[in-house]
Amino acid sequence: MSPPQWTGVFPAVVTQMHQDQSLDLAACTRHWEAVIESGVAGLIVCGSLGENQCMLPEEKRAVVKHAIEVAAGRVPVITGVAEMSTHAGTSYMQDCEKLGVAGFMIMPPMVYKTDPRETQHWFRTLAKATPLTWMLYNNPVGYHTDVTPEMFVELADIPHLAAIKESSANTRRITELRNLTGNRYQIFTGVDDLFLESAILGIDGWVAGSGIAFPKENQQLWDLAQAGRWDEARALYRWAQPLMKLDTHIHFVQYIKLLCQETGLGKEWVREPRLPIAGAERDQVLKIIREALMQRPA
């Protein structure tokens, strides 16, 4: 049986928190409802933007359980897998399968940087944990582990590996993947301010980050690109670009949570060791956000 064909916008949502760093599931609900209402095709919780690595095991499972309840079958809920050991990864996946998750977005091992042989072993081992569909998150910029197009040729024998979140920031990879693997995988872009360039090259989906703060415009941009309405897409993309670029900084979690706060869709509170941005950096980011929102399309 072939895995589901994941396509469209799958936003990677933040995990809302109280100022004391405890989970704020009620705020998560309000935000997720706005995102789902915009017309997205799926919901990704506990990804990098969702502060997966800073949450306790029971907190991750609580967020997944709550997201499934909120989505109530309207969109598939998938969860990021960001663990330091194969045992922790497989245990988490099996627990989430029991909770009713639709699939996974699997990251490379956290902390330890694997060589190519270890990288393949990691993904193949986690793939055996459940029969659910999964997306491989390739982000050598952030995690220093690169899954090359040639490695995806080798991984193609994993039947339920359906999609790639390509976040190398090298748009050449999209064409290289197509040339080497054809339509074997659904290819998602994971770099917001390379969305339109990636769409022109031919992608199946978008794991959106900053767009969770302006979900209607974000979905409209996807729809325009899919319809080939390039002049309109360019205009909207140029407006969104300063906000999208907030997703490419080491403080991207703080920036996007602050952006959500400015659009009324959340609060800026983060889990330590992250701290809310302050001083000149905060002033500069707020300037970018507020100038863009003043010019927000009607």
Rank of each mutant, 00 (worst) to 15 (best):
S2M: 13
P4C: 08
Q5N: 13
T7Q: 15
T7V: 11
V13S: 10
M17I: 06
S22C: 08
C28H: 15
A34V: 05
G42H: 00
L43G: 04
C46P: 05
G47T: 04
S48K: 03
L49D: 01
G50E: 03
E51Y: 07
Q53G: 10
L56I: 06
P57M: 06
E58N: 13
E58K: 14
E59Q: 12
V70S: 06
V70E: 05
V70M: 03
G73M: 09
V77Y: 02
I78D: 04
G80D: 06
E83I: 02
E83W: 02
M84N: 13
D95Q: 10
C96Q: 07
E97G: 03
E97S: 07
E97V: 04
T119P: 03
T119E: 12
Q120P: 02
W122N: 04
A127M: 10
T130D: 02
T130F: 04
P131Y: 03
N138V: 01
G142E: 04
P149F: 08
M151Y: 06
V153A: 09
L155F: 04
I158C: 05
P159E: 03
P159D: 09
I164A: 07
S168Y: 11
A169G: 08
A169M: 14
E176K: 11
L180N: 02
T181K: 10
N183K: 09
Q186L: 08
I187K: 05
F188H: 02
D192G: 00
L194M: 14
F195P: 05
A199F: 07
I200T: 13
I200V: 15
L201T: 08
I203N: 02
G205H: 03
A208G: 04
Q220K: 12
W222E: 01
W222K: 01
L224M: 06
L224H: 04
Q226S: 06
G228E: 10
R229C: 11
R234P: 02
P242V: 02
K245G: 02
K245D: 11
T248S: 14
H251M: 14
F252I: 00
F252H: 05
Q254N: 10
Y255W: 00
I256F: 03
L258G: 01
L259M: 07
L265G: 01
L265R: 12
G266I: 00
G266L: 01
G266E: 06
W269Y: 15
L275W: 15
G279Y: 06
A280I: 13
A280Y: 12
D283R: 15
D283L: 14
I289S: 00
L293G: 03
Q295D: 14
A298W: 12
